[in-house]
Each structure stands twice: as C-alpha cells, then as structure tokens.
C-alpha cells in the first residue's frame, strides 16, 4: 500500500505548481490550465483519502469535482473567445481598459 504521506505530498506539489503557474504566467490559457492542475491535485488528495479510509464518499466528491471542472472549462473558454474577438490577445497584461 502506498503511504498517505507520499500521496499527499505529490498532491501538494501539483497544487503548488498550479498556484505558481497561475501567478507567474500571463497567458490566459496557461493560467487557466494551472487552475485545472489545482483541481486535479485536490482530486488526488480525495481519492487517496478514500483509499485509506475505506469509504467511497471521497471518490464521489472527486467525481463531482470532475463534472464541475468540465462545466467551468466550457464557460471559461467561451469567455476567452469573446475577449479574443474584441482584443486579439490572450495576454493578461494587455487587458487594460479597466485598471487591473
């Protein structure tokens, strides 16, 4: 059996890579991918807990998170498309009509 410490550490590393990507990149699409990485890290933690506690509940939560991520992606990419139609850019720093 894989130890819970190792699993949580892997999930924390992925989560932190996601945060770092979100903070340091200025490409909207990659920032958005970083968020997906964070959600995956959460799912990994949930599934590890399910395995180690022997209850299925955490797996169900992870399943709902996946459905939610799919919905979020549909809306997010639609927003990115509208922005691109008007501004021809996916660089956050060039979105400056409103003072960021």
């Amino acid at each position: 059996m894989i130890s819970l410490h190792q699993l949580l550490l892997l999930s924390a590393v992925l989560f932190v890579i996601g945060i770092a990507g979100f903070i340091t990149r200025r490409n909207i699409i990659i920032m958005f991918m970083s968020v997906e990485l964070m959600l995956n890290a959460a799912n990994l933690a949930l599934i590890s807990f399910a395995n180690h506690s022997g209850s299925m509940d955490a797996q169900l939560i992870a399943l709902f998170v996946m459905a939610l991520a799919a919905a979020e992606v549909a809306v997010g990419l639609a927003i990115i498309i509208t922005v691109f139609r008007n501004k021809q850019t996916v660089n956050v720093d060039e979105l400056n009509i409103l003072k960021w």
Partner: peptide, 9 residues
C-alpha cells in the same frame, strides 16, 4: 469581456 475574464480567472 475583460471584466468577465478577470472575475472568472
């Protein structure tokens, strides 16, 4: 658009 994007991200 821009407001929606920032809020969303």
């Amino acid at each position: 658009n821009e407001a929606a994007l920032k809020y969303f991200l």
